[in-house]
């Protein structure tokens, strides 16, 4: 177990380094930040002065190691556009992204797990077919299009929900649905497949033979085992949701890190994008490790090996 953990962590650190180096080079190549800072009416001299002032005239490798050294001590640099530390910008905006992501995941799980279980209990029944169709339809829906349709129908035509911003809980409903539905099919399929497998396994048959009630079998034994891959998938999906919320955050005017990354990319504020890429990578890696550990806790077989 300890060896497993150490290996996972070593890999995680190596991955984080690689991601940071690759994104640093890519982002620096994506535009001249000095021109962006100087603004529309700047002269060539203004731009040269800014380039020097921000140290942008040094070799790329030196700039990277400089950044890395600071990043390791927790300093992600300053946003050129906002003129504030990147870590402050991220910590201001991450809560919104995490809140939307968590609600989206909650939406996806509450919709997909019961459906998956119901489908598994009665394979080839109408409910199974309904679940399958929902999964296929959901997977084919472009999320930006779905979000626009939600705004149009629920927001403007029916006026059921607030359209943008974060004022109340209701503000989070549309973004959570728009972000969460895409994860629903995958989680549902996995729940269904896992349940079918577990229900056919010997020990469930034994439990049945011993005369245990269906509910008890379902929740105490079957679901617990079927949950293992679902939890891993949910964790990974959560990571994807955080990075996939660019469009959703822009459409629903949510001040989260996804939108921050997108506008920062547009204005070549590369320290911000760099910080966000690193943060998302670290979150993703941590989630993967946590999912592994959680699996080990749920499934004694993994713990032993």
């Amino acid at each position: 177990m300890l060896g497993f953990l150490v290996r996972r962590l070593a890999l995680a650190v190596l991955v984080a380094f690689t991601v940071s180096a690759v994104s640093f080079v890519l982002l620096r190549a994506s535009g001249d930040v000095a021109v962006a800072i100087a603004g529309e009416s700047a002269t060539e001299a203004d731009i040269a002065a800014i380039r020097h002032q921000y140290g942008l005239d040094r070799p790329l490798a030196i700039q990277y190691f400089d950044w890395l050294g600071n990043a390791l001590s927790g300093d992600l640099g300053r946003s050129i556009f906002f003129n504030t530390p990147v870590s402050d910008l991220i910590s201001e905006r991450l809560p919104v992204t995490v809140a939307v992501g968590a609600l989206a995941l909650l939406f996806a799980v509450t919709l997909s797990v019961p459906l998956g279980v119901a489908a598994a209990l009665r394979p080839n029944s109408p409910i199974d077919h309904l679940a399958m169709w929902l999964a296929v339809l959901g997977q084919a829906m472009p999320s930006f299009w779905f979000a626009l349709l939600l705004v149009l129908v629920l927001g403007v035509w029916w006026r059921l929900l607030p359209i943008s911003g974060t004022g109340t809980f209701a503000h989070y409903i549309m973004p959570a649905i728009a972000l969460g539905y895409y994860a629903t099919p995958a989680i549902m399929r996995l729940t269904r497949a896992g349940m079918i497998e577990v229900l056919q396994s010997d020990y469930i048959r034994t439990a049945r033979a011993k005369g245990l009630g269906t509910g008890r079998i379902l929740f105490k034994h079957a679901l617990r085992n079927a949950a293992i891959p679902v939890v891993a998938l949910a964790a990974v999906q959560f990571g994807f949701m955080l990075s996939g919320s660019i469009v959703i955050e822009s459409i629903f005017a949510l001040p989260g890190v996804g939108h921050l990354a997108w506008i920062s990319l547009q204005r070549s504020d590369f320290t911000v994008v760099q910080g966000i890429v690193l943060m998302l990578a670290v979150i993703y890696i941590c989630l993967a490790v946590v999912a592994d550990l959680f699996n080990a806790w749920l499934d004694p077989r993994i713990r032993v090996s």
């Binding site: 190596l14 991955v15 984080a16 991601v19 190549a29 994506s30 990319l265 994008v273 990578a281």
Partner: peptide, 23 residues
């Protein structure tokens, strides 16, 4: 290969695609 796959998975696809397209 495992390392490369994990690295790739931990990069936010949309952001990287946007950055590359910008370059």
């Amino acid at each position: 290969v495992n390392f490369v796959v994990v690295t790739r998975l931990s990069m936010p696809v949309i952001l990287i695609a946007l950055a590359v397209v910008a370059v």
